Simulated scan of single mutants.
Amino acid sequence: MLAKIQLVWCKPLRPEARCTWVHREAVANALVKDGKVTAFELVDAGAGYSSVPQVTVDGVKDAQAKVELAFGKDLAKNGSVVVLKAQDGK
């Protein structure tokens, strides 16, 4: 079963605060078997992440994922997801 995932890039400390970092959300699909994430398919690496995003998967409670970012001079790719690996399906 494929499930939609969300990579949350910004959580303001105060509710009235806003995230001003320019970004493009990463897009990925999750392969779910027996209620566990076994793999991810990274469709779009996104850009503009300044820290590792939180991964949530529809229908999977407490999905665990390893996420790594890449940083460089190309602003269109700076702060993009380069590693997205399932940790649930060990």
Score class of each variant (00 low, 15 high):
Thr56Leu: 15
Gly79Gln: 04
Glu41Gly: 02
Val67Thr: 15
Ala26His: 03
Phe40Arg: 06
Lys90Pro: 09
Gly72Lys: 12
Gly79Glu: 05
Asp44Phe: 08
Glu25Phe: 10
Trp9Lys: 04
Gly89Ser: 03
Tyr49Ile: 01
Lys73Pro: 03
Leu42Ala: 05
Ile5Tyr: 00
Ala63Lys: 06
Thr38Trp: 00
Leu31Ser: 10
Val67Met: 12
Leu13Gln: 07
Gln6Ala: 10
Asn29Phe: 02
Asp88Met: 03
Val81Leu: 00
Ala39Phe: 00
Asp44Asn: 12
Glu16Ile: 07
Leu75Pro: 00
Trp9Phe: 11
Ser51Phe: 08
Asp58Thr: 15
Cys10Phe: 11
Phe40Met: 00
Val55Lys: 05
Leu42Ile: 08
Val60Phe: 08
Val57Tyr: 14
Ser51Ile: 06
Ala30Arg: 05
Cys19Phe: 08
Cys19Met: 03
Asp74Leu: 11
Val83Pro: 09
Glu25Trp: 08
Leu7Phe: 05
Ala86Trp: 01
Gly89Val: 06
Asp88Gly: 05
Val52Lys: 15
Ala86Gly: 06
Gly59Lys: 11
Val22Gln: 10
Gln6Gly: 01
Ala45Pro: 15
Glu41His: 07
Thr20Ala: 02
Phe40His: 04
Trp21Lys: 12
Gly46Ile: 06
Arg24Val: 10
Gln54Lys: 15
Trp9Asn: 04
Gly89Cys: 01
Ala86Tyr: 03
Lys66Ile: 01
Lys11Asn: 13
Val43Pro: 08
Pro53Leu: 11
Pro15Cys: 03
Gln64Asn: 09
Val43Met: 13
Lys90Asn: 08
Glu41Gln: 12
Lys66Met: 13
Lys4Tyr: 01
Asp74Ser: 06
Arg18Asn: 04
Asn29Glu: 14
Thr56Trp: 11
Glu41Asn: 06
Trp21Glu: 13
Val52Glu: 15
Gln87Cys: 02
Glu16Arg: 07
Trp21Thr: 15
Asp44Leu: 04
Leu75Asp: 12
Leu13Pro: 04
Pro53Phe: 06
Val32Asn: 07
Gly89Asp: 09
Lys73Ser: 13
Leu2Asn: 11
Ala30Leu: 06
Arg14Lys: 10
Glu16Cys: 07
Phe71Gln: 05
Val37Trp: 11
Gly72Gln: 10
Ala30Val: 07
Val60Lys: 10
Phe71Trp: 14
